[in-house]
Amino acid sequence: MADTHAAQAAASGTTTTGTPTSAMSGSDTHFGAGYAVSAGSTAHGAHARAHQFDTPQQQYAASNLGMWIFLATEVMTFGGFFLAYIVYRALYPETFALASPHQSATWGTINTFALILSSLTMALAVHAAQTGNRRRLTMFLGFTIALACVFLVVKSIEYTTHIEENLWIGSQNFHMERPAGEIVDPEAARVDLDSTVQQGRAKIFFFLYWTMTGLHGFHVLIGIVLLSALLINNLRKVYSENYYTPVEMTGLYWHFVDLVWIFLFPLLYLLGGAHWHI
């Protein structure tokens, strides 16, 4: 239960192995003034503890902190994209309002639900691991993988449509048409989309669209690989209520990937009014 988790968290960061002895005692040790030798790191026999750690709790705390730092680097990575997005949206709001409706809000919403649901199943998977319920862990990892696959399938349908509509930025024939349906923004409605200038700006939107969703999709793919590895390990009975760090770390990663999408969806799909089409 949560007690296990609390016990692990409570012990995090402590390195209390043994009691300090006198600095000057033990003349045959190598320690000079100011240092002593501890009674020794005797907390052996724990499951899957690497040699550099004294206790499984220390190992858990280190993995946890390492994962959070990694997520901080991820925030900075996507932050670079968001910065570029903010700059160009501020510069060319009308073009962005015309480009965004080429995204299908329908597919976007389906994918948003798929990822939010997968966050739930991931959280349930972590809980199952903490309580040592292998059957439920297998089930929820399976659900999470399935939802991640749904996301990627929908995304590739969208990508295909975009390529057919000449919206792939690498294409020689890149051309953004006026979107079907009503344009809410009166400024945007007046824009002459056939000019080279406007097409260049549209291309910047799609540059951001393809790179941001592409990098995010790559993260989803990595997530599927990690989740599958967890699933295989779980079938080999690696995890128990005493050892579930990899499940929890992957969980953190997966929630982050979902969170990025929560930002991408409104920024890329919902400008200029949501357009519900498939």
Partner: peptide, 30 residues
Amino acid sequence: VLATPVLAITLLLVAVERTLRVGIFDPALG
């Protein structure tokens, strides 16, 4: 940890811009 990812993304953008001939940093293309 905090600065290097931004360099990675910046260089990635340059590489994509150069490969695909898009103008995210090119004033001629907006």
